[in-house]
């Protein structure tokens, strides 16, 4: 079953066309990764799905229901969880309060879901009263992911979760993404760290300056000559 469909979406910033009619789809239960260099439009794609940008053309469907034109809080209510680029934890709220924000629309499972997040990220449990802004980069990333999970999303959009983190932490984050996916959450993962993303994902798309350049099974992209050259930094 196709959970998320992005069809022929165009996004403009003033005169600049950031997305020039891109399409992608994510099946229920999949991990799909969206690769591309800086400025290719990866973040714009996620922000458009979430309703932070209005597309000039095209449709976005979640489980057959249109998301296009809906404001972000309605998109969130429909089951889209978004871990934004740069983590964006609320700096002057505690870890607990940040998680509460994730459950803003429905607090009925607050206790249960907070416990689950602390189980996934024991380091957050130790810092539950600490302000978000004082956490390390890795802890902030964990908090941002935990916060998004608090809304029990049907699809989780992750924007460069490995950015600026030490390799060991990146490893942990990727393991958690895998675990979350195993528990049934569909994932759309934007990454610069192409090798690691492709090893985790079922399928991948490659975005080049606002156009979808390639797509395919992750294991095929991982051995594709062009992907290896440009995104895996191999020879």
């Amino acid at each position: 079953m196709t959970l998320l469909v992005v069809d022929d979406v165009v996004v403009r910033y003033g005169a600049v066309e950031a997305l020039k009619g891109i399409s992608l789809s994510v099946e229920q239960g999949e991990v799909v990764t969206l690769l591309g260099s800086n400025g290719a439009g990866k973040t714009t794609t996620l922000r458009t799905i979430s309703g932070l940008h209005a597309p000039a053309r095209g449709t976005i469907l979640l489980d057959g229901e249109p998301l296009t034109g809906k404001p972000p809080h309605e998109v969130a209510a429909m089951g889209v969880g978004h871990v934004p680029e740069g983590r964006r934890v609320f700096p002057r709220m505690s870890v607990n309060e940040n998680l509460e924000m994730g459950a803003y629309r429905d607090r009925s499972h607050l206790k249960e879901d907070t416990d689950r997040v602390f189980q996934l990220f024991p380091r957050l449990a130790e810092r539950r009263e600490q302000q978000g802004g004082t956490l390390s980069g890795g802890e902030q990333q964990m908090l941002a992911i935990g916060r998004a999970l608090m809304s029990r999303p049907r699809v989780l959009l992750l924007d460069e979760p490995s950015m600026g983190l030490a390799p060991l932490i990146v490893q942990t984050i990727f393991e958690i993404i895998k675990q979350v996916n195993d528990e049934g959450v569909t994932v759309l993962l934007v990454e610069q760290n192409a090798a690691q993303a492709l090893r985790l994902a079922d399928r991948g798309y490659v975005l080049e300056t606002g156009t979808m350049a390639m797509d395919g099974a992750a294991k095929d992209l991982l051995v594709d000559d062009r992907v290896r050259q440009v995104y895996l930094g191999e020879g």
């Binding site: 979430s50 309703g51 932070l52 404001p71 972000p72 809080h73 969130a76 209510a77 978004h82 934004p84 964006r88 609320f90 700096p91 002057r92 709220m93 309060e97 509460e100 924000m101 994730g102 803003y104 629309r105 916060r147 809304s151």
Partner: peptide, 21 residues
């Protein structure tokens, strides 16, 4: 909570389901 979230980061608040308007 909505007011504080919007004050700290309005875009992210909206991603949490806060109706910013």
């Amino acid at each position: 909570r909505g007011i504080r979230a919007v004050a700290q980061d309005a875009d992210t608040a909206s991603l949490m389901g806060v109706n910013v308007e």
